[in-house]
Amino acid sequence: MALQRILSLLLLLLLTLLGLGLLQPSYGQDHMYQRFLRQHVDSKVTNRNESYCNLLMQRRKMTSRYCKYFNTFIHEDIWKIINICSTTNIQCRTGEMNCHEWSVVNATDCRLIAGSKAPKCRYRAMTGTRQVVIAPDGNPALPMHFAR
């Protein structure tokens, strides 16, 4: 419990330094982190149904040239998601050892309905709690890739 408290305080310090601009990710890292946020984070969700997926996939620019087949939106505070980066490393599907897992998050999976064509992509929503695996990168470690 004391270790968890220390890690929480260190994470808070790190995020404060990041927020003050004293610690900056590189441009490539910042771009990938912003992409992760755009594609996978929606902490202020209220209604998670088919129209939610259709609207958010379009707003987040995942339906303009082609319909993205599957996407998950995590409905948690960004600090909780960043905290996943401090959990124990696990093996990714690619074989690399830079993935981290969190057992219970609120999420919506959006799956493309067969026959949908861009830009009028249509999605089926599956909501609930689930396990997520992310691959962070950088110093400080920030989520860059949603693994599953």
Results as ranks from 00 to 15, higher is better:
residue 107 A to K: 15
residue 95 G to E: 01
residue 96 E to L: 14
residue 148 R to N: 13
residue 11 L to H: 09
residue 71 N to Q: 09
residue 21 G to K: 08
residue 125 A to Q: 09
residue 36 F to N: 03
residue 98 N to P: 08
residue 48 R to A: 15
residue 86 S to H: 10
residue 144 M to Y: 00
residue 90 I to F: 06
residue 93 R to N: 10
residue 125 A to G: 05
residue 69 Y to T: 14
residue 54 N to T: 05
residue 118 A to S: 08
residue 96 E to V: 12
residue 44 K to H: 13
residue 141 A to R: 10
residue 27 Y to T: 13
residue 74 I to S: 01
residue 50 E to P: 06
residue 60 R to E: 08
residue 62 M to K: 08
residue 29 Q to V: 06
residue 133 V to P: 02
residue 32 M to H: 10
residue 37 L to G: 05
residue 9 L to V: 04
residue 122 R to E: 10
residue 128 G to F: 03
residue 108 T to P: 05
residue 136 P to F: 03
residue 70 F to S: 14
residue 17 L to C: 12
residue 46 T to Q: 11
residue 64 S to V: 09
residue 110 C to V: 00
residue 18 L to V: 01
residue 118 A to L: 04
residue 128 G to M: 01
residue 39 Q to V: 06
residue 35 R to S: 03
residue 29 Q to H: 04
residue 52 Y to I: 01
residue 32 M to F: 11
residue 46 T to Y: 07
residue 67 C to M: 00
residue 110 C to S: 01
residue 25 P to W: 00
residue 130 R to D: 01
residue 103 S to C: 10
residue 126 M to Y: 15
residue 93 R to I: 10
residue 32 M to I: 11
residue 130 R to A: 07
residue 78 I to R: 08
residue 8 S to P: 01
residue 102 W to C: 11
residue 124 R to E: 15
residue 5 R to E: 14
residue 126 M to G: 13
residue 78 I to V: 15
residue 16 T to Y: 14
residue 145 H to G: 02
residue 74 I to G: 03
residue 29 Q to C: 07
residue 103 S to H: 14
residue 48 R to D: 12
residue 98 N to C: 10
residue 12 L to A: 13
residue 72 T to C: 04
residue 17 L to T: 09
residue 33 Y to M: 03
residue 42 D to W: 07
residue 95 G to C: 02
residue 40 H to S: 04
residue 101 E to D: 08
residue 59 R to N: 10
residue 90 I to K: 07
residue 16 T to E: 11
residue 26 S to P: 04
residue 121 C to Y: 03
residue 68 K to M: 10
residue 84 I to G: 00
residue 41 V to M: 11
residue 42 D to K: 03
residue 53 C to V: 00
residue 133 V to G: 01
residue 7 L to S: 14
residue 104 V to E: 15
residue 36 F to M: 01
residue 40 H to W: 06
residue 62 M to N: 07
residue 79 W to Y: 15
residue 38 R to Y: 03
residue 136 P to I: 05
residue 111 R to A: 14
residue 84 I to P: 03
residue 120 K to N: 12
residue 144 M to T: 10
residue 111 R to P: 02
residue 114 A to L: 12
residue 15 L to T: 06
residue 56 L to K: 14
residue 141 A to F: 05
residue 136 P to L: 03
residue 63 T to S: 09
residue 81 I to F: 07
residue 55 L to P: 06
residue 113 I to Y: 08
residue 131 Q to C: 09
residue 90 I to L: 07
residue 54 N to H: 02
residue 119 P to R: 04
residue 23 L to T: 11
residue 127 T to N: 13
residue 39 Q to K: 12
residue 143 P to K: 02
residue 145 H to F: 04
residue 142 L to N: 05
residue 59 R to S: 09
residue 67 C to G: 03
residue 20 L to Q: 14
